[in-house]
């Protein structure tokens, strides 16, 4: 495996192996060890053409714990925002000797363009592209779900997950749907019909417009962020109405089954898709998702970079 562009690049065995590796790495991180020498001398570039402090910091912490050299190339102050082409940026990164590029980009498919081009040879890791995918987020979500709900099983067989909110524009949802299916979980999507893509009938998911009907039967409720600008594009009338039908509030929290958990990829709109008391409740694993993110991203970097032969890297 050279790149991580989409969850569809992974076999079930590869996905499980990333989760297993992350489990061992989490154990290391919990102890006295904060740094491993594994990627010493390797250069990882965080190319963030779109703001995302949390994902960037998570990848940066993961790379540093593996002793890689990290270069941050963020949108503000970089040439990406000044109209330099993706191609020229790639050529620059190649000249700098990047071994891996972690890319966050507003355009769907930008990471694949980098990976497929002959502009550079580095491994490409998709850290969120447009409304396409966010595979590392899905892996950390699966890691979190496995820890809480899988009862020791390596995969997520039989676990029921509801993904609620703006599926149409969510790269988190796309990656999660693919990965949850790969790992044997069943997925229900809950959203207003305007926020579900045309063509969704072919996806291996159940679709519901009724949140209350779905809640009691699932082990995981995964809330998606709703962007304020969707209101002006007629996707729903206003925030109040959205929140009434699709927000996770304390009344709906009571409908959840006893051992179920609440997830959110962040950043949250408290009071819109999730009520503050739900986000801070005992069922919420939202903060844990963040800390799991570092272990999972270490595992991704390890799997993609540690085993690469010197020869291949220098070609």
């Amino acid at each position: 495996m050279r790149h991580l562009l989409s969850i569809s690049d992974l076999s079930k065995a590869e996905a499980v192996s990333i989760l297993d590796t992350a489990t061992e790495l989490a154990r290391v991180s919990d102890g006295a060890v904060k740094k491993l020498p594994t990627l010493r001398g390797r250069t990882i570039v965080n190319l963030f053409a779109e703001d995302s402090t949390r994902t960037r910091i998570s990848f940066e912490a993961a790379a540093k714990r593996l002793s890689a050299d990290v270069i941050n190339f963020s949108a503000k102050g970089s040439s990406v925002s000044k109209g330099e082409s993706l191609k020229d940026t790639a050529l620059t990164l190649q000249a700098m000797g990047a071994d891996a590029v972690v890319i966050r980009h507003g355009a769907s498919g930008a990471p694949q363009r980098l990976a497929d081009s002959e502009w550079m040879l580095a491994s490409v890791i998709n850290a969120g592209d447009g409304t396409h995918e966010h595979p590392s987020q899905a892996l950390l979500d699966a890691f979190t779900i496995r820890k809480h709900c899988a009862k020791g099983a390596p995969d997520l067989a039989g676990i029921r997950v509801a993904i609620v909110g703006d599926v149409l524009h969510s790269r988190v949802a796309r990656s999660n749907i693919l990965l949850l299916n790969l790992l044997g979980a069943s997925v229900s999507l809950v959203a207003p019909p305007t926020l579900l893509p045309v063509g969704i009938e072919k996806w291996p998911v159940d679709i519901s417009y009724d949140f209350d009907a779905v809640i009691p039967s699932v082990d995981v409720v995964m809330m998606l962020r709703v962007q304020q600008e969707r209101m002006s594009n007629l996707f729903f009338p206003n925030a109040r109405e959205y929140s009434r039908y699709f927000g996770l509030n304390s009344d709906r929290l009571k409908l959840m089954s006893p051992h179920s958990i609440v997830m959110h990829p962040g950043p949250m709109n408290r009071g819109l898709e999730i009520a503050a008391e739900v986000a801070d409740s005992a069922r919420s694993v939202i903060v844990e998702q963040v800390s799991n993110g570092v272990s999972v991203r270490m595992a991704i970097l390890y799997v993609l970079l540690a085993g690469q032969s010197l020869e291949a890297g220098e070609k």
């Binding site: 590796t21 061992e24 790495l25 491993l36 020498p37 390890y302 540690a306 085993g307 010197l310």
Partner: peptide, 18 residues
């Protein structure tokens, strides 16, 4: 595994428990 000096000569090895 994470401390080996021959990691880059082989496909990635799965981690073993510590």
């Amino acid at each position: 595994t994470m401390h080996r000096d021959d990691l880059r000569m082989h496909p990635p090895r799965p981690l073993m428990p510590t």
